[in-house]
Design a protein around this nucleic acid. Structure first.
Length: 514
RNA sequence: GGCCCCAUCGUCUAGUGGCUUAGGACACUAGGUUCUCAUCCUAGAAACACCGGUUCAAAUCCGGUUGGGGUCACCA
C-alpha cells in the first residue's frame, strides 16, 4: 500500500553579514557551511545584507563582501546582484527582494506596529544611563542583568503624553515571564533557556529603526529560511528570535550553531588578533581554494583521514553531524602547508599567471606574452618567466613570497655581504680559489644549459673534500641569497654573460673587503 | 557575576562500550636524498582534565569537580 509521502520542505540557508568592516574569516566559514549545506540538499543559499546599523554600515564594505564571497566561488541563489565594475550593487535577484535590510523598512514597520497593537511590544522611556546602572546593580548582587520592565505597564495615554513631550524612547519586546524556551540545535542537541534571564529586550529604536533580533527573525520567516546556520555566539540570540517568531505565529527554522574560530589564546578570533580579514590573505597570496579547504576543516571533518577537498567534494561529503562542538584554533601553519600543496599542484602556466600580480614591483606587462623588467629595461617572454617560477614552485608557500625568491633575475646589482660567500670553515683565499674555478669552468662552456653546467662543475666539485666548497660560493655569487634553487639552473637562465659577470663581482667584493 | 556552550597529542582531528599497545594531518626532532633551501622518503617524541558511578568491560554512558569559551548594546 502506498502511503502519501510528506512534502519535504525546501532547504534554504542564508548568510546574513553586516557590512561594517573588512570581511572576516569567520564570516566566510559561516557562509561556506551554509553554502555547503544548501548545495548538498539541492536547496537555496541566500545572501542577505544586514545593514540596519546606519552608522556603521557602508556600501564599500558591502561591495567588498560580495567580491570576497565571489572570490571564494560561493555563489548565492538569491541576494544582491554583484557587479564587478560598479562600486555598488543595486538590483537584486530572487523573489524576496530587496535583500538589503535597509530597504525593507516598510515591512518591518508593519510587523512592529502589529506587535505593539497586540501588546507584545511596548514603548520604553527609560534612559540609557538608568538601564545601565540597573544592570550593574543586578550583576553585583548576582542576579541576571536584565531590564526590569519599568515601562511595561505604561498606559496608552502615558505613552502618548511622553511621545508628545518628545521623550526619547525605544521599543521593547514583552518577554513572557517564567517560561522556558527550548530549541533543538542540530549540532548541540537540546538547549533550554529561561525567559527570566533575558528580560524585555529592545527590538527597535523607533518604528523606522528596527534592530537586529527583530529584523533577523522577521526576515528568516519572510525568506522561508529552513536552516539557520551561524556562529555559537548567536546562541543567546536564538531564544529571543524564537519568541518573536512565535508572536507572529511563524514556524521556527532549524538551528545549527557552529563552534567559534579561536586565536592561539583560545579566544574568539577578532580583529585584534592580526590577520582576520580575508583581504589580508588574498594580499599575501593564499589561494581561495586552499583557504576554503582549510576553513572547512576548522570544526568539520569527513570522518576519515582525507584532508584535501575541492569545493565540489566538500559539497558531496558535507554533513552537519560531522561538525565539532568545541571551538577550533586557527592554525596558520597548516594553512601554509595546504596552500603550498595547492601551489605545487598547479601547472606552470597557471602558477605563473597567479604570480604575475605579485611581481609588479619588478616587471610590467608589455604585450600579451611579454614583460619588461623595470630596473634593467630588458624584455622577457612569459616562457622565460615560467622557467624562473618553475624553479621555485616547490619552495613557494604563498604567492606573495615569489618576489623575494626570484628578484635576483630582475635586479642590476645583487646586494649581499661578503660573509655569505663563506661555506662552513672556508677562508678568503679558499673562496677566491673556489670562485675562480667556477669562473673558469663556466667560461669554457659553450652549450650553456644546466645539464652541461652541472656536469662540468661537478667534475671540479668532486675533486674537493666537499661539493659545497665549490657550489655554495657560486650560488651566493649568482643569487645573493643563502637559500635558492640550484646554481646550474640559475646560471642557465641568467645566461653565460651575466653568470660570468656575477662571479667576477663576487671576486671583487671579497678582495675589496679583505 | 547570571545564563548558555564546551573538554582526545602544541594545533586540527579519528574514535558512537570490547576491533585501541588511542589512528591520521600540521608543527617539532632525528635520519636518508642534497651545495643551501624546499620537495620527497623513513623513523621518533607527543593526548583521552580530574573524581565518582553504571557495566564482565568506558576515551566512549551518567553525575559531580575543575578548567576554558560565549553572551548579557538604543551593534550585528
Amino acid at each position: 500500500m502506498m502511503t502519501p509521502r510528506k512534502e519535504e520542505k525546501r532547504i534554504r540557508t542564508r548568510f546574513a553579514p553586516s557590512p561594517t568592516g573588512p570581511v572576516h574569516i569567520g564570516g566566510i566559514r559561516t557562509a561556506l557551511f551554509n553554502y555547503l549545506f544548501a548545495k548538498k540538499n539541492n536547496g537555496d543559499f541566500i545572501l542577505r545584507i544586514e545593514d540596519t546599523d546606519k552608522e556603521r554600515s557602508k556600501k564599500e564594505w558591502e561591495h567588498q563582501l560580495l567580491k570576497a564571497i565571489k572570490w571564494f566561488g560561493l555563489d548565492w541563489d538569491e541576494g544582491p546582484t554583484f557587479f564587478e565594475q560598479k562600486e555598488i550593487s543595486e538590483s537584486y535577484v530572487g523573489p524576496h527582494a530587496p535583500y538589503r535590510q535597509s530597504e525593507r523598512g516598510e515591512m518591518y514597520k508593519k510587523y512592529l506596529q502589529k506587535l505593539i497593537d497586540e501588546g507584545n511590544a511596548y514603548y520604553c522611556f527609560c534612559t540609557k544611563e538608568e538601564v545601565e546602572s540597573q544592570k550593574q546593580y543586578l550583576m553585583s548582587i548576582g542576579e541576571p542583568p536584565i531590564y526590569l520592565g519599568k515601562c511595561r505597564t505604561l498606559t496608552k495615554e502615558q505613552v502618548e503624553e511622553n511621545i508628545k513631550q518628545g521623550k526619547e524612547c525605544v521599543i521593547r519586546f514583552r518577554t513572557p515571564e517564567n517560561i522556558k524556551i527550548k530549541f533543538k540545535d542540530l549540532i548541540r542537541g537540546d538547549i533550554e533557556i529561561d525567559s527570566g534571564t533575558m528580560g524585555d529586550f529592545v527590538i527597535a529604536k523607533d518604528l523606522d529603526t528596527p534592530l537586529y533580533n527583530f529584523t533577523c527573525a522577521v526576515d528568516d520567516a519572510e525568506m522561508e529560511i529552513s536552516h539557520v546556520i551561524r556562529g555559537e555566539d548567536h546562541i543567546s540570540n536564538t531564544p529571543k528570535q524564537i519568541l518573536l517568531l512565535r508572536a507572529f505565529g511563524f514556524e521556527e527554522p532549524k538551528y545549527a550553531h557552529l563552534p567559534l574560530i579561536l586565536n592561539p589564546e583560545r579566544k574568539k578570533l577578532s580583529k585584534r588578533d592580526g590577520k582576520t580579514s580575508v583581504d589580508e590573505y588574498i594580499l599575501e597570496g593564499y589561494l581561495g581554494e586552499s583557504l576554503l579547504n582549510f576553513i572547512a576543516l576548522l570544526g568539520w571533518n569527513p570522518g576519515d583521514n582525507r584532508e584535501i577537498f575541492s569545493i565540489g567534494q566538500l559539497i558531496k561529503e558535507f554533513s552537519l553531524e560531522k561538525i565539532q562542538k568545541a571551538g577550533a584554533v586557527f592554525n596558520i601553519e597548516k594553512l601554509d602547508w595546504i596552500n603550498g600543496l595547492y601551489l605545487r599542484k598547479k601547472t606552470i602556466r597557471e602558477l605563473t599567471m597567479l604570480c604575475i600580480p605579485f611581481l609588479d614591483k619588478y616587471i610590467e606587462k608589455t604585450s600579451m606574452e611579454a614583460f619588461k623588467i623595470k630596473e634593467t629595461g630588458e624584455e622577457i617572454t612569459i616562457e622565460f618567466l615560467e622557467k624562473i617560477i618553475l624553479l621555485y614552485q616547490e619552495r613557494l608557500k604563498k604567492l606573495g613570497e615569489i618576489g623575494e625568491l626570484i628578484d635576483l633575475f630582475f635586479v642590476k646589482e645583487l646586494n649581499y655581504s661578503k660573509e655569505l660567500l663563506k661555506w662552513k670553515e672556508m677562508n678568503d683565499s679558499q673562496i677566491i680559489q673556489s670562485l675562480e674555478t667556477s669562473l673558469k669552468v663556466v667560461s669554457s662552456i659553450n652549450e650553456f644549459n644546466h645539464e652541461k653546467i652541472q656536469e662540468e662543475l661537478f667534475k671540479e666539485a668532486e675533486k674537493m673534500e666537499n661539493k659545497g666548497n665549490l657550489l655554495w660560493p657560486l650560488r651566493v655569487a649568482l643569487t645573493g641569497k643563502s637559500n635558492s634553487a640550484p646554481p646550474f639552473q640559475i646560471a642557465e637562465l641568467l645566461g653565460k654573460e651575466k653568470t660570468i659577470q656575477r662571479i667576477k663581482k663576487a671576486l671583487i667584493l671579497i678582495e675589496h673587503e679583505k
